[in-house]
Design a protein around this nucleic acid. Structure first.
Lengths: 231, 231
DNA sequence: AAGGTAAACTAACGACGTTCACTGGCTTGA
DNA sequence: TCAAGCCAGTGAACGTCGTTAGTTTACCTT
């Protein structure tokens, strides 16, 4: 019977309707306005109905972001074709920044929300696998992607000492992009700080960092270390 | 009569007791565990009593952080004696990072929490002055402090093109420190990212950035651009 | 001693996430 | 064909939260 499949399809459809309603509120009003009751109301359901499709609110939000963070993964592959690893890192950073600024609420949720640390008691057992994967995977992907590009830089001897630890350098690059966009998201509209274009700041910062790390800043290379490349 | 003064003193004392109880919960359990009801219970008061001393929860939290952020201001003055402006920026960054890692909950609240943006309707009138000052002032101070050091660098021609915009360069430096510590705070304990010492990463990042911006990286100067200065 | 002031209390409101017993329509198998 | 069972969704409640209005209580002033 295809009826089972139809049921599964219907189930998935309402799941998607829930996520769509949530995304609607999320993108428009931000994280704290997304309420199970509001989501339910939007699709003319009862709040309790959402628990048929998601374990809890956090799982719902995670699923929502996981969907949209496919875009980040895809965007970061922009640099795939670039053979020069330093330029690839630069391209990845630019894509990352563009994504963050295009989806500030998602970005806030995924990269700027400190989840309650597993409280001593609840270790491997209580924290079930799906939760870990849901939360960790999307950006692990992105992280691994950046790390791979950084590793290529180091393997080719493009970075001088002491910038030869893949983990540390990856975090430095990540932090450069994250630092600019997250500051802009939280303080970009504060009146007391004259915020310029975050894109420009981020590009300049990544340029400066890479310029500071490359072994031979102004040698033939591939034009890798000329900050004027971005305006 | 000194009775008025005594009343004021008593009033201030309970205000401090409230803040102390809040800080206790805050430092130990983090932001979302700090509840007006819990604070009140800790000092054997009723939740409603807190509204005699603070306008609302946010004002209470802001007052709490404002107190402790005096430490940040003080810590950042460490570099005051350093005459070389680039080195001063480096010292400021180091103090900033140390503070953030020493007070992660405070740091999260002040620099990583996106406040609800003034919603179109409520502009200059609705958002009253005290709120603005309470929120903006502590880190504006720190921001102005960093900005001043950066301006000295630029005035002395220490940074090459295109790193000559005080605002942009200040934000780049700020973002470098903030990027590392905020990533560490949110993702430092995630199993899927092998986080190294955030201090080391932050120092290296700031070194790389400054190294990438200084006009003549390896010239007599003042040893300003040797990343090995920090391990 | 009477009146005023202000800190603190009692009690409640509305909104939140979450739970649990239930219902009603659909699928299934005899 | 019809009883059994499954399961998406309901209704009502629980405990928590921030916040408010009205009231009490203790002290100060006159």
């Amino acid at each position: 019977m295809g009826s089972q499949e139809r049921r599964a399809r219907e189930r998935n459809a309402t799941r998607e309707r829930i996520l769509a309603a949530a995304r609607d509120l999320f993108v428009r009003d931000g994280f704290e306005k997304v309420t199970l009751r509001r989501i339910a109301e939007a699709i003319e359901y009862t709040p309790a109905a959402l628990y048929v499709h998601f374990e809890d609110k956090r799982a719902l939000m995670a699923a929502l972001c996981e969907e949209d963070f496919g875009l980040l993964r895809e965007a970061m592959r922009t640099g795939d074709a670039i053979e020069d690893p330093v330029e690839r890192v630069r391209a990845i950073g630019a894509a990352y920044v563009d994504f963050a600024l295009a989806h500030p609420h998602h970005y806030t949720f995924m990269f700027m929300t400190a989840w309650p640390t597993p409280e001593e008691g609840e270790r491997l057992d209580a924290v079930d696998e799906t939760k870990m994967i849901r939360h960790g995977n999307p950006d692990e992907d992105a992280y691994a992607f950046l790390r791979h590009a950084v590793a290529a830089c180091i393997e080719q001897g493009r970075f001088k000492e002491p910038y030869t630890d893949v983990g540390v350098v990856t975090q430095m690059c990540w932090a450069s992009a994250h630092g600019v966009v997250s500051l802009f998201i939280t303080h970009g509209h504060d009146p007391w700080v004259d915020f310029r274009s975050p894109q420009r700041s981020a590009h300049l910062l990544l340029d400066a960092v890479l310029d500071g790390m490359v072994a031979t800043p102004r040698v033939a290379g591939a034009g890798a270390a000329t900050p004027e490349a971005h305006s």
